[in-house]
């Protein structure tokens, strides 16, 4: 019940995450994401502006297991307004999980994950929410969610260095500290986007995205 209420609360208060899971038609994107929960590398190709297909490698630090997966992201709905844009995505993947930690001895299981992501932004404010359910046989089975709010301290024009100050809230019910707060700075210019932050537990967040 507490999990349910927190989920609803995050959705209501933050609505819509992250650098876009779908690019422009023909676009190739590489994302390296590192935070308290996991390290991941995601390479995807977008045949249309509504779909991306790619490869995802994840290493979950606390649970000490990896997932190699094929991931598909779908833009289910986009709202283009005069001064803002909002997006609703479905992000899913299937692959193989591997663990050699604890009781596991070179354990391999089929793995799948799915979740939704929503974001809204104008040139000054940003808000996002995403969740995910991960099933990896005997190795893992868990739900995570996170939300962000952000503000741009200045409004840059096209081609400028853009800077955002953001706060990320992660909810991972199975961790000893299920809710963490991570203040971070997002900067992007041209096709490069970088994020750096540190959580209230001292965990470092470092993300980098490049779009070809």
């Amino acid at each position: 019940m507490k999990l349910f209420l927190l989920t609803i609360g995050l959705i209501i208060f933050t609505m819509p995450v992250q650098a876009r899971p779908v690019s422009y038609p023909g676009g190739i994107t590489a994302m390296s994401m590192n935070d308290a929960d996991k390290h991941s590398l995601h390479l995807h190709y977008s045949p249309t502006a509504k779909t991306s297909l790619g490869y995802k490698l994840e290493y979950w630090r606390d649970r000490d297991f990896t997932i190699n997966a094929l991931q598909m992201n779908n833009l289910l709905k986009r709202w283009n307004n005069k001064d803002s844009q909002a997006n609703f995505y479905l992000k899913s993947g299937v692959g193989i999980a591997y663990s050699d930690a604890g009781a596991f001895d070179h354990e391999k299981d089929a793995a799948a994950f799915t979740g939704i992501a929503l974001d809204w932004e104008n040139r000054r404010f940003f808000t996002s929410y995403e969740n995910r359910y991960t099933e990896a046989g005997d190795i893992a089975d868990f739900f995570t969610q996170k939300a962000r709010v952000g503000i741009a301290p200045y409004i840059g024009d096209y081609g400028d260095l853009h800077t955002w100050i953001m706060l990320q809230v992660d909810h991972n019910p199975e961790r000893s500290d299920p809710v963490t707060f991570t203040p971070l700075v997002r900067m992007f210019k041209d096709v490069h986007l970088g994020e750096a932050g540190i959580s209230d537990n001292g965990d470092i967040l470092l993300n980098y995205v490049i779009r070809y």
């Binding site: 005069k82 040139r123 024009d157 853009h162 779009r211």
Partner: peptide, 12 residues
């Protein structure tokens, strides 16, 4: 153009 609020995305 409506929805053009982000430099990174407008690259498309």
């Amino acid at each position: 153009v409506d929805g053009m609020v982000c430099d990174f995305c407008a690259r498309s």
